[in-house]
Simulated scan of single mutants.
Amino acid sequence: MLTEVVATRYVTPLREGGSLPGIVEGDDLGTYIMKFTGAGQGRKTLVAEVICGELGRRLGLRVPDLVQMQLDPVIGLSEPDQEVQALLKASGGLNLGMDYLPGALGFDPLAFEVSAREAGRVVWFDALINNVDRSWRNPNLLVWHGELWLIDHGAAMIWHHNWPSAEQASARPYNASDHVLATFGPDVAAAAAEFGPQITEELLTGIAADVPEEWLLDEPGFDSPDELRRAYVRTLMARARTISDRITIGEPTKDKPSQAPEWLAGKLPRRAVK
């Protein structure tokens, strides 16, 4: 079960993402990136964050700690932005918090080096959860204290937006040609040998149990949150059995220049991220 924290202060919105997450402080004296149930993508985004984030962590990948965050919309009354106020009003109750990594830099492949082993582990993981949002267009990776951290998994597991087609979707291959780590020669075979045996029904059932029940209520076609949890487990188990053979890496769609600040891309040496 994820730790529950109460939000005590809304600090500032983050405008990089479409869901308008915000930096908040909690009653445990921690600082978090809060993702809201009232955002346009809805609670399924938060479900994906929990299942994929906790799965990544249990496989040994670096994912910021996740917590359940109770939000009283009154903490945003002094926020001058009407869009933010509307979002807070629509998100009273239980939301998701991700540990804030102060000083973290957005990953740029021209400024940081990644080993083939680590690249393979991330690509294999993204293939399993069908993460379409780790491309050179939007890496969703941070470098913190010289290490690679994975963030923002809300767009993964797209099959849970249409459960009748989930079985068919779970069998689809994963094209990693545009993956932000594709240029580092990902050792997908080594990742499959390491991660494949770890994907068990017991592991996935424990992870699905971390999803708050209220985010799983009233899903069409399911009689209870536990039935829906079992559907997540079945779909990921089915995908894990064959995904290692269905990952392709070809030429990216097009080149893109580095988005790192000039002082970073031009002056810092390439750093090893193990």
Rank of each mutant, 00 (worst) to 15 (best):
residue 219 E to K: 05
residue 273 V to L: 15
residue 273 V to Q: 13
residue 223 D to N: 13
residue 239 R to T: 10
residue 223 D to V: 12
residue 242 T to K: 12
residue 252 P to L: 11
residue 245 D to F: 01
residue 214 E to Q: 08
residue 235 T to F: 01
residue 221 G to H: 08
residue 221 G to C: 08
residue 268 L to G: 00
residue 234 R to I: 00
residue 217 L to G: 07
residue 274 K to R: 07
residue 237 M to T: 04
residue 221 G to L: 10
residue 241 R to W: 03
residue 269 P to F: 00
residue 227 E to R: 06
residue 251 E to N: 05
residue 252 P to Y: 09
residue 236 L to H: 01
residue 267 K to G: 12
residue 223 D to F: 02
residue 229 R to G: 00
residue 249 I to N: 09
residue 241 R to I: 08
residue 246 R to E: 06
residue 255 D to A: 09
residue 260 A to Q: 06
residue 248 T to A: 08
residue 247 I to W: 08
residue 241 R to K: 15
residue 260 A to G: 02
residue 254 K to N: 10
residue 239 R to I: 06
residue 258 S to I: 04
residue 243 I to L: 02
residue 234 R to S: 15
residue 263 W to Y: 03
residue 231 A to H: 08
residue 255 D to L: 12
residue 267 K to M: 13
residue 260 A to M: 05
residue 262 E to F: 10
residue 216 L to M: 12
residue 232 Y to D: 01
residue 260 A to N: 05
residue 219 E to C: 13
residue 224 S to L: 08
residue 249 I to W: 01
residue 235 T to H: 05
residue 247 I to Y: 07
residue 245 D to V: 00
residue 264 L to G: 03
residue 254 K to L: 14
residue 238 A to Q: 09
residue 245 D to C: 03
residue 248 T to K: 05
residue 268 L to A: 13
residue 241 R to L: 13
residue 222 F to M: 05
residue 224 S to F: 04
residue 238 A to F: 02
residue 222 F to V: 07
residue 242 T to V: 15
residue 271 R to I: 11
residue 226 D to I: 03
residue 262 E to K: 15
residue 268 L to D: 03
residue 230 R to G: 01
residue 264 L to M: 15
residue 272 A to Y: 03
residue 224 S to V: 05
residue 253 T to V: 13
residue 269 P to D: 15
residue 233 V to N: 03
residue 271 R to L: 14
residue 261 P to G: 02
residue 236 L to G: 00
residue 235 T to Q: 10
residue 243 I to C: 03
residue 252 P to A: 12
residue 227 E to G: 07
residue 219 E to F: 14
residue 222 F to T: 07
residue 263 W to G: 04
residue 227 E to H: 11
residue 265 A to L: 06
residue 247 I to P: 00
residue 235 T to E: 07
residue 259 Q to S: 11
residue 272 A to D: 13
residue 234 R to Y: 03
residue 229 R to M: 02
residue 256 K to P: 00
residue 271 R to S: 14
residue 243 I to G: 00
residue 255 D to M: 11
residue 240 A to N: 07
residue 266 G to L: 15
residue 267 K to Y: 11
residue 269 P to N: 15
residue 244 S to R: 10
residue 239 R to N: 06
residue 225 P to I: 00
residue 233 V to A: 03
residue 225 P to Y: 04
residue 218 D to C: 04
residue 264 L to Q: 15
residue 256 K to N: 04
residue 274 K to T: 10
residue 214 E to L: 07
residue 249 I to K: 08
residue 265 A to P: 00
residue 260 A to Y: 07
residue 219 E to R: 11
residue 262 E to M: 14
residue 235 T to A: 12
residue 258 S to V: 04
residue 231 A to G: 10
residue 215 W to P: 14
residue 240 A to L: 04
residue 263 W to L: 09
residue 257 P to M: 12
residue 224 S to Q: 09
residue 216 L to P: 09
residue 270 R to Q: 12
residue 225 P to S: 01
residue 230 R to I: 02
residue 221 G to A: 05
residue 236 L to V: 08
residue 258 S to A: 05
residue 230 R to P: 00
residue 221 G to E: 09
